[in-house]
Amino acid sequence: MARHKPTAEGGYQRGEETRARIVDSALRLFGERGFEGASTRDIATAAGVNAPALQYYFDNKQGVYTACIELILDRVWEQLAAPVACAEALVEDAACSDAQLIDCYLGLLGSFIAFIHDRPSAVDWRRFMAREQAGLGPPGTLALMDERLHRRLGTVTCTLIGRLTGYAANDERTLIRTFALNSQAMVFRVLRPQVLGVLGWDTIDQQRTQAVREVLLGQTRLTLQALVADRDARLAR
């Protein structure tokens, strides 16, 4: 685990600014070159510090990489914490309506869509996460992502979809549907050049993000309403 030593301890400039600069530089270089291709010396040089300073904060290259993962997870949860907590509370209420469950899921999907908006750090983050999700990071980082993000998110969304379809949260049909619905916004990150080319866009700004949001939420609402209707017809037989 990366260390964060207090500013009172000895010889290097310390503090949040220095640590953040190292992580920002590491995100860019890991995204461009991969974990093996980016050296600690290159990261330190890009951050404007010397190699011992990087080791002081993070011990080694894997420590820097883990700090990058933790930064991304923190930013993701800033966006998702409120809608996920709301969803977790709602699925505990056996009396909640299908309309409430649908609105709750759409709130989560809307939070996913917000991540396609281009920001100054977006390119570095996309490259970094593309390599990480392909399993090209150091050992243990996929497990960290699963523990800190995917497990909780998957549990609540599968429970929501299961309630709406009438199948158990761990039923294969529920899992397939949930993965498909949750991943709708990912195409705008993973296949970004192709999407931009088809749409004739040069970037995805706030206005275009809103356009994507309206289309995806609208079609997902129709899909979920159809699944509810299918559930009710199936149970009525």
Rank of each mutant, 00 (worst) to 15 (best):
A38T: 09
A82R: 13
V123T: 05
A38P: 12
D42M: 13
A20P: 07
G140E: 13
G37D: 04
E88F: 05
L106F: 12
S111G: 08
L71Q: 15
P138T: 11
R19P: 10
H117M: 04
V64E: 00
Q79W: 08
V49P: 01
A85N: 06
G135R: 02
P139A: 06
T66D: 03
P120L: 06
A114V: 05
A82M: 03
A46G: 07
T66A: 02
I22V: 06
Y65D: 01
R148H: 10
A143M: 12
A99I: 04
R28S: 06
L106C: 09
Q62C: 02
L29D: 02
E36M: 04
V64T: 05
L144R: 08
A81S: 08
S97P: 11
F58S: 00
A81M: 02
L80M: 15
L108W: 05
D59P: 04
L149D: 07
L101Q: 14
R119C: 01
I113A: 08
R33V: 01
R127L: 14
L153W: 10
A44I: 11
T66P: 03
T141I: 10
P120K: 07
F35R: 05
R28H: 09
N60E: 02
E147Y: 13
S121I: 08
P52R: 07
Q62Y: 04
S39L: 01
S25A: 15
F115Y: 08
A67F: 14
E36T: 08
W77A: 00
R151M: 09
A81R: 04
R148F: 03
F30L: 00
A89E: 13
A67Q: 11
